[in-house]
Design a protein around this nucleic acid. Structure first.
Lengths: 206, 206
DNA sequence: TTAAAATTATTAACACTGTTCATTATATTT
DNA sequence: AAATATAATGAACAGTGTTAATAATTTTAA
């Protein structure tokens, strides 16, 4: 059955080609400009060929989204070296905001666009591979904070949700140019960091 | 110069026609399905005519966005009757979440899409007519809470930002199907309300 | 009143988009 | 070598926002 294996490998290679071309377009022109035809041009295949390897454009965007998460997760590698879970939470928030501001296109795909979620539902994957990992990181830290009595005990998911909501609220309002309606443009980033720190501070004291 | 006035009135009437047709499509089919051609069909004009009355599609979406704010502001009318600013803040948060969940398409346009902000920048309006009003409401309440020593004193804009961030974070993650990755789907709405209440509670105690 | 100018509306077209179908080319199996 | 399965493609569908050129109408000026 070596032949089927080889075929599967070839298939996987072309899928990779498609995704790499997509990412190249993505980082250069933003995901609004990632089109089936442009990807096809780049790898010198016809547009219809992409549909042999992916169900639709959403599925390609889904994989780009997962790549974004890989980058975000990588940016959190330093976390494991911090012993205090509350300090870990501070850094997690810091990193989240920085990632969002530095990679708005990825952030968009990961947390704002519908496309990736559609794929998860349609192919009923049942889970969100890298997204769930990122959320698990947050929950584990909150759990540890509670275990060590650094923050008040409560429902981990609900507290995690509130923390995530602040961070996501800040980043998404910022990259959609809404925050500068409230704070002077050159103070937006600073205020964002203050907000997330303030949030964790009050959580600590609560 | 009565003739110029009449012309201006006629012009304004057709603009109104266009916007009303847009809104009709918007509420029926969602804003992804609002297209220049569909609007034109509805009012029985050619698509190009719309460009005589509006610069581009973004400008039309901008006006739909403003209509959304009018609805949101109207939903906050009951606020003035509440004497305690902290209770007003609770209701404001409640209303915000309800509005977002009940009008996800409007919410999208008001707080997520780029289109309306593009129009504000391009025509350099300098301000965001209804958006600024809505934000002012929040800031005034926070200010009054501080004046009456109900919450700790601090920078009004920054605290307002944090509160807005939680609310927007919750709503935008919810309508983009991200929250159900953290909390069971049937408990999302309840958890959202708990989160915003918790936020204001801790703000009160801080 | 009539000719010139300005406004308003339309048709046709451009340059795209995602996606599907029928057809051809290639590779694999019988 | 013939039949079958897989891979790739060209053409087309049905849409998108937008613009340039043109025709129709209305307003202004001579």
């Amino acid at each position: 059955m070596g032949i089927l294996e080889r075929k599967e490998k070839q298939r996987e290679e072309i899928r990779k080609m498609i995704l790499e071309a997509s990412m190249q377009l993505f980082v250069k022109e933003g995901f609004e400009n990632v089109s089936i035809r442009k990807i096809a041009d780049l790898i010198e295949y016809s547009p219809t060929t992409l549909y042999i390897y992916f169900k639709d454009k959403n599925e390609i965007l889904f994989h780009l989204c997962e790549m974004g998460f890989e980058q975000m997760i990588a940016s959190n590698l330093a976390l494991v070296q911090i012993e205090s879970p509350i300090d870990r939470l501070y850094l997690l928030g810091e990193n989240y905001i920085n990632f969002g501001l530095e990679n708005p296109e990825y952030y968009d795909l990961m947390f704002i666009q519908n496309a990736p979620m559609k794929t998860i539902r349609e192919q009923n994957l049942g889970h969100w591979p890298n997204g769930d990992i990122a959320l698990e990181t947050l929950k584990l830290i909150i759990q540890e904070c509670m275990d060590k009595k650094l923050i008040p005990t409560g429902d981990v998911a609900t507290i995690s949700m509130a923390v995530w909501a602040v961070a996501h609220g800040l980043v998404s309002l910022a990259i959609r140019q809404r925050l500068e309606r409230l704070v002077e443009p050159d103070k937006v980033v600073q205020s964002m960091h203050e907000s997330i720190r303030w949030m964790i501070n009050t959580l600590k004291k609560a």
